[in-house]
Design a protein around this nucleic acid. Structure first.
Lengths: 344, 344
DNA sequence: TAACTTTGCGTGTGCGCACACACTATATTT
DNA sequence: AAATATAGTGTGTGCGCACACGCAAAGTTA
């Protein structure tokens, strides 16, 4: 039989109210009784009944969620879906989650929205970070105001957060490199970055680094190329200049470091039908191209799981009082046409 | 504000007791009031509060779990771990899970244990199946006694179960085939089955089928070989006769269809260091060989997730009243040395 | 010393629900 | 017609906990 608060109270020779004050550190308990109660809790191995606690609780905990507009980026859209799933799944625990979006191309917007959120004094903020410096600022303010932080995507050093959830970009690159290394007919590799956001470049460059390092470890030798591709009209690297490079360098393998492999494939696959194309993330456009064998391979960065896990981490910590680890790296799922159905 | 039982009662002009009888189909309600209450529930969009329900419930639901001894097979050991994880995670919902093991080489043992379990009149049985016919028998008996069944591993046709959870063996083979097809230096493939259990052969043969079909779709042509390997002294196919075949047929690629790739690798990798070895499942022995590059690739059949999901499915259905799908195929994770850390 | 504040405790209520029980009106048996 | 069963309904209690409140004793201020 599990010990209840009543049992603790009887065992310690106090009332349930006192036990309650000890459990929740509400004060107004002499250090002597405090110790007696603590001792009783230890002896009877008291574990709170989460279900009863949830039912009795008056104050609902507020979780603010700060992520980029889902329409700006499909990866964030998936993360958002995961977050929503988490909120639904843990709804019985009375988590009140409120999502606020920011413009992922405007650090200032992030800052101002962050300030608004702080006004509301939430119990925790789930930060989907695109801006390194601004995120550090926000985390610091949270820490001053005793608001817990869960950070996704951008790894923050030196400032304590409840947990960081994300991927290890360098390892992503390594993994892609290992696959290219062992794949038939891959010898001349082009890395394609599709971004205008400078903050994001670190991740992308890390992938490139990991990839090239992995290739260098092979006994075979590889041609390596790296470009920044934009579909915009007036950009310096449009699809025609890309085509020129592919022709000139005899590129046979392309790795798009972002979610936008579909952009590349749509623009160039008909000119170069034999290109081996590797991209990221199970977004609709990529999925359909993978099915049509226009894209050969996707490494999923588990956006959905990232969102879900971030909510789950908060619940684990705050409701279920579980220990959660400081950093949580998500798996990198390797997805071909054949195992795609299991992931969607 | 969510509608509560009291609200329904007031709205229907009856007492909460009557509403309770309607909700739980306890009878003793005239059809007229029954309809009134049902109507009120619909109008107020009544959803039971799972937390309050769990707290108030007297009768705890009993879930019997029937799986092979974990020490007989590492895959089942992982499944078991997943089940235990599930039971822990959903413990707040007062699920009482009791695991009973059977000898995976003895159908009779399965049968007798199954009878014992039925004596206890559980609410549901989670069947980790190794024997096709015996499982069908058990499922039928459960169906007669209004006991829900969740079946893992062996896909039962024509008899209704709450849900089936497993993998699609043919697709597993296809996936392996697709990878071999595109991997450098693979041309002569040997499929290795390591089993004495006849029932299991169907799965293994399906994998082989999927693999060979995938290879046949390639423009390249592949040598195909298939053997049943046993490490036992007096078996017809021991490691030396296997070595002879590898030499004779110039095998360069080996696919072990079970969890026992480590057995093969340990027996033959030093004689044939360049063999490309593909196996299944993240069991300790395989993991360490993958790290040492003695095994090149593992397809994880998600034993852990299978166990977890089976418990979760029961909770979703029985506690949370969610719709759950009839068949749930688990993802096939492709695991190289590089992405291994994320999966363990 | 009287009027306060603070400290340190105990008591009581209700969260939303399941379930046991009590009660009446009608139907069935003897 | 009386005794008994049964259909149909309402009431009350408690699951384990959080939290508001009450109340005495000790400390503080004027």
């Amino acid at each position: 039989m599990k010990a209840k608060i009543k049992d603790i109270a009887k065992h310690a020779g106090v009332s349930t109210g006192t036990v309650d004050r000890v459990i929740h550190n509400r004060g107004r308990v002499s250090s002597h009784t405090y110790n007696k109660v603590k001792q009783a809790m230890r002896e009877l191995r008291y574990k709170p009944d989460i279900v009863a606690r949830t039912l009795a609780k008056k104050e609902k905990s507020l979780l603010k969620i700060l992520i980029p507009y889902p329409y700006q980026d499909f990866y964030w859209k998936m993360i958002r879906n995961g977050i929503e799933q988490g909120l639904t799944e843990f709804a019985p625990y009375r988590i009140k989650g409120q999502t606020v979006f920011y413009d992922m191309n405007d650090p200032g917007h992030f800052e101002s929205i962050a300030q608004q959120i702080l006004q509301e004094k939430p119990h925790a903020i789930l930060i989907g970070s695109e801006f390194y410096r601004q995120t550090i600022d926000l985390v610091r303010q949270c820490s001053e105001q005793d608001i817990q932080c869960i950070v996704m995507n951008a790894e923050i050093q030196s400032i304590p957060v409840l947990t960081y959830i994300g991927i290890n970009s360098y390892v992503v690159g390594e993994l892609v490199g290992r696959i290219i290394r062992s794949t038939r007919g891959c010898s001349s590799v082009m890395v394609v970055h599709t971004t205008e956001n400078i903050d994001n470049t670190i991740h992308l460059k890390n992938k490139e680094l990991g990839l090239f390092d992995a290739l260098d470890q092979s006994s075979l030798s590889f041609q390596k190329e790296s470009v920044i591709f934009s579909n915009k009209k007036n950009s310096e690297m449009d699809s025609s200049s890309l085509a020129a490079i592919i022709k000139e360098k005899e590129i046979d393998t392309v790795y798009v470091t972002t979610s936008k492999a579909y952009m590349f494939a749509n623009a160039l696959k008909n000119q170069f039908p034999d290109l081996y194309i590797i991209g990221h993330d199970l977004i609709d456009q990529n999925i359909s191209l993978l099915k049509q064998e226009q894209i050969d391979l996707l490494i999923d960065q588990s956006g959905y799981r990232m969102g879900f896990l971030s909510v789950k981490s908060w619940v684990d910590h705050h409701i279920l009082e579980k220990e959660i680890s400081e950093k949580q790296y998500l798996p990198l799922d390797i997805i071909y046409k054949e195992n795609l159905p299991f992931y969607i």
